[in-house]
Structures are given as C-alpha cells and as structure tokens.
C-alpha cells in the first residue's frame, strides 16, 4: 500500500484537477494506517464529519476518502476569530494488492473515519506445522 499523494500516479493528478475545478481548498486528513494479520486499517481525523457527510470510494485499486463537515455558525453569528476556514477533507490511497470492494468496511465515530480493508485469503500469513523428523 502506498500513499498516493507522495507519488505521481494518475489518481493524484485527477484529484488536483477536481480541486481546481471546484475552487475549494482541500485538507488532507491526518491518517494512521495499520496492518494486522487479516486486514489493513485506515483511520483519518476528519472533525465534524458524520456518516451522512463522509464518502469512501474505491476505483482501480485507489481508495478515496472524503468528507465535508458543516462549518457555518448559526444564523446571525459573526466571525470574531478564526484559525481554520471551511474544510473539505480528501485523500487517496493506492492499494497494491487485489481487494474485493464489497468487503471494505467504513465507519465514522467522533469525527474519525475508519476503513477496514480485509486482505485476500491467499495473502494472509499461514502457520505451517512442523513435524518431528
């Protein structure tokens, strides 16, 4: 698995084009990736994003996560001080191995998006029993 944004793969070019077209700044969510025996787990910080505003898509071995949290203050409130503007989170990951998109699981909890990518059976580690010779 490689991070798409560090390579010059076609998926990144596509992302940049989309950004320019819609003229909004894209925030790359800070992400942890872990590997277990049976799956890869991606966890991305996307504060303010819930299950209705998060999107996970998978195409040609590129996993794209995105989300747009509600930013505006309630009616009548005026900005006094701001450090961050309206956010649009997006990040793409290229997966090296064959993955069945039907088996991907995505959940959002407390503004953290978690995607579990199960490994294919043939890629899982197998313990081979050793017999006395």
């Amino acid at each position: 698995m490689s991070n798409c944004s560090t390579s010059s793969k076609p998926c990144c070019q596509q992302t940049q084009l989309q950004t320019e077209k819609s003229v909004r700044s894209v925030t790359r969510p800070r992400t942890d990736i872990h590997e277990t025996e049976s799956a890869y787990v991606i966890q991305a910080d996307m504060p303010g994003v819930d299950e209705s505003s998060a999107q996970v898509s998978f195409e040609k071995n590129v996993l794209t996560i995105s989300g747009e949290p509600q930013f505006n203050a309630p009616e009548g409130f005026e900005s006094v001080y701001h450090e961050s503007s309206a956010r649009y989170f997006e990040r793409s990951f290229r997966l090296n191995e064959q993955v069945n998109p039907q088996e991907l699981k995505a959940t959002v909890s407390r503004g953290v998006l978690t995607v579990v990518i199960p490994k294919a059976e043939e890629l899982r580690r197998v313990q081979i029993p050793i017999q006395a010779g």
Binding site: N3, D32, E35, S38, Q43, T107, V116
Partner: peptide, 20 residues
C-alpha cells in the same frame, strides 16, 4: 488516546502514523 478499533488487535504493524 488513539484506539485502533474495527479489527482484531493481533499483529498490528504501523505503516503510517500521523495522528497526534
């Protein structure tokens, strides 16, 4: 505190760690 939920905790290997 980061909890790596959503999977069995066996054999966790860190590939990328950016979250504080």
């Amino acid at each position: 505190q980061l909890n790596h939920t959503g999977t069995d905790q066996t054999g966790i290997e860190v590939i990328k760690s950016e979250r504080h």
